[in-house]
Write a protein that binds this DNA or RNA. Structure first.
Length: 274
DNA sequence: AATGTCTGCAACCGCCGCTGT
DNA sequence: AACAGCGGCGGTTGCAGACAT
């Protein structure tokens, strides 16, 4: 059954907002707060759809909106996050304070996407973008269960508990992890290779079988405050484990997985937390 | 100067998940 | 369990200004 429109379209203004409309909306929200978008236009005296009011507020009028061009750092982060999350603009925007999903989406479509299309000789692409071009050139196996990035946003806040059992073996440390919640992840992070043991920070090989949401949601996890420091993730008993690098490998040697980030993937999840 | 084309981005649209009944 | 309302999301559109001819 088809839903009715969010509000009657009869007699409503459309298109660009006027300064007066902005003023009315801003003053109303400053007094009454956000939410109740459906009823807001009538109560505020605006001839606008509730959705339109919400969009205008979130993308333009909100006081914490950051104006100005996207910086190089922000662009690099967008590219990196996009390689992880795909077109989940709201999640990406959530990692860029003051930026909106609409702004990032527009920026991607008009700048980065175009650069990627033109990527190659003479372009000003930085390394990240060139890597992303390589990503595009690779075949993804979206639909074969091998891709870890989903395109649909989900909300998964405060539902997640990561427990780690650490056992030391001759070959190093094995961390068994599981995520308790609606999303399932099972797997383990293997010890650093012997070759990398010069690094005081552990390199882990990951052999993971997990829900496709896991990585994107891991970014969203509310880790304990202390876990955000010095690349530490807390064990159950509260002792920190140093985790700096995670590499992924196919679940079995027979799998042929082309990860978007290349054959192996460097990721410091705590970069994005807190 | 006039006209056509391109670009950036604000805004709209339709779909979806969550929640309350 | 089924339904409806709401908020949120991503894709797309359309317009205004910039730029090219």
């Amino acid at each position: 059954m088809r839903r009715s429109p969010c509000c009657s379209k009869e007699g409503l203004n459309k298109g660009a907002w006027t300064a007066l409309e902005d003023k009315i909306l801003t003053e109303y929200i400053n007094i009454h707060g956000e939410g109740k978008w459906r009823h807001l236009p009538k109560r505020a005296g605006l001839k606008r759809c509730g959705k339109s009011c919400r969009l205008r507020w979130l993308n333009y009028l909100r006081p914490d909106i950051k104006r100005g061009n996207i910086t190089n750092d922000e662009e690099a982060l967008i590219i990196r996050l996009h390689s992880l999350l795909g077109n989940r603009w709201s999640l990406i925007a959530g990692r860029l304070p003051g930026r909106t999903d609409n702004e990032i989406k527009n920026y991607w479509n008009t700048n980065i996407g175009r650069k990627l299309q033109n990527g190659g000789a003479g372009s000003t692409l930085n390394t990240n973008i060139q890597q992303d071009q390589n990503v595009k050139d690779q075949e993804w196996h979206y639909d074969k269960g091998s891709c870890l990035v989903q395109t649909k946003a989900t909300t998964w806040t405060n539902k997640v508990t990561v427990t780690n059992e650490i056992s030391r073996h001759n070959e190093g440390i094995i961390i068994k992890s599981n995520v308790i919640g609606d999303n399932k992840m099972k797997g383990f992070l293997l010890s650093p290779s012997k070759e990398s043991n010069n690094d005081p920070v552990l390199d882990f090989m990951a052999d993971l079988e997990m829900d496709g949401n896991f990585f994107s949601e891991l970014i969203e996890m509310d880790l304990p405050e202390s876990s955000c420091q010095e690349n530490k993730i807390l064990e159950d008993n509260g002792n920190p484990i140093m985790v700096d690098k995670v590499y992924l490998s196919p679940k079995s040697s027979s799998d042929t997985i082309h990860y978007p980030w290349g054959d192996s993937w460097y990721w410091n999840p705590l970069t994005y937390v807190g």
